[in-house]
């Protein structure tokens, strides 16, 4: 029962984090939300019994990709341009 609850929470958090990445106009916030998404995705891989993929996702997705996006935002501009 508690496994079902944890799994449902992780999956719901995945969808919410993905929507937040889509909705944020502040690109730095979107990068952080993408880090949260990657972390939850690695938890989901672990629950689905794929620990190899979980380690790779935690290292690359949650660690390095967030750093790379943050550097890219710092080098360009922070706010997304609103379409007219």
């Amino acid at each position: 029962m508690i496994v079902f609850a944890a799994h449902a929470l992780v999956v719901a958090g995945l969808v919410i984090a993905a929507l937040l990445v889509y909705r944020f106009r502040d690109l730095l916030s979107a990068a952080i939300a993408f880090g949260v998404f990657s972390f939850l995705l690695s938890l989901e891989f672990y629950i689905l019994q794929a620990p190899d993929v979980a380690i790779a996702e935690a290292g690359i997705g949650a660690g390095l990709t967030t750093a790379i996006y943050t550097i890219a935002v710092r080098g360009t501009q922070r706010w997304e341009e609103t379409e007219e």
Binding site: H7, A8, V11, A12, V15
Partner: peptide
């Protein structure tokens, strides 16, 4: 959002 949540929660 509702359809996405339902689709992702179905395997659970």
């Amino acid at each position: 959002v509702a359809v996405l949540l339902a689709g992702f929660l179905a395997p659970v």
